[in-house]
Amino acid sequence: MWNEIFLIPFLTGLGLAVVLPLLGCYLRLRDEWLAALAYSHVAAAGALIALVAGFAPAVGGVAAAGLAGAGKRLFSRRLAGGASYALLLLGGWAVAVLLAANHPMAERLGHALFDGQLYFSGSEQLWLVAMGGALALLMLRALSKQLLLLHVYPDFFRIRGVRAWPTQTGFDVLAALALALATMSMGVMGAFALVFIPPWLAFRRAGNWRRGLLLALFIGVAAYVAAFLLALGLDQPFGPVLALLLIVIGLVIA
């Protein structure tokens, strides 16, 4: 386990297991949990487009998700009520499946992205997750009060002459980039499980916001460590083991 072959993937996933549950709390606050699936699918499609075009898949995935996050607000009036996330999810899935069906290399990468390929993470990915994760945590800390205030008292911003869009767009881009990074490492559903289930439980059980964040973080990290060891010990793919473990934890705690 402490061999570098397993240590680097473990640390890469651990970084994501810290960031994703906290990010998920703010997505749930904004009733945007579907965004996790949407950005993950767009990132997968972007990675496959980059691969077919001869670029690094990770760059394509991060760029596609980042563009989706930044551009979503331009269509916010036409695509209210979560429609933007449904369209991004469907579009990302359709592009990814079509590319996988027509390019053998894209098919292999597509499987890896949707099934999760944490054990193949290298040191470059670890550094990317470490730096991106630290930046994401700092940004979440900076945006936290505004995001809560926007949800509880949306008029407070307008009445004080403060513009809401920098907070909203900043959070959208942050969520898109974090989910792109997670998709590249642990796959679409592994990332979604960490974004959705720990915050869902925290919102049900925690006594206040701060404890909610801590509870989501604890559940996410504990489930991740257990899933990593289980998958390794049983020689099973990581993503489905993590998802099943979180479902069991969810049913017990909820």
Binding site: V152, I159, F203, N208, W209, R211
Partner: peptide, 22 residues
């Protein structure tokens, strides 16, 4: 500096937010 209380109820159902945090 203005402050406005509307008749809209703050959407806090299902949200782990305490009065002190509000």
């Amino acid at each position: 500096r203005l402050a406005l209380q509307t008749q809209d109820v703050p959407p806090v159902d299902g949200l782990p937010l305490s009065g002190r945090e509000l």
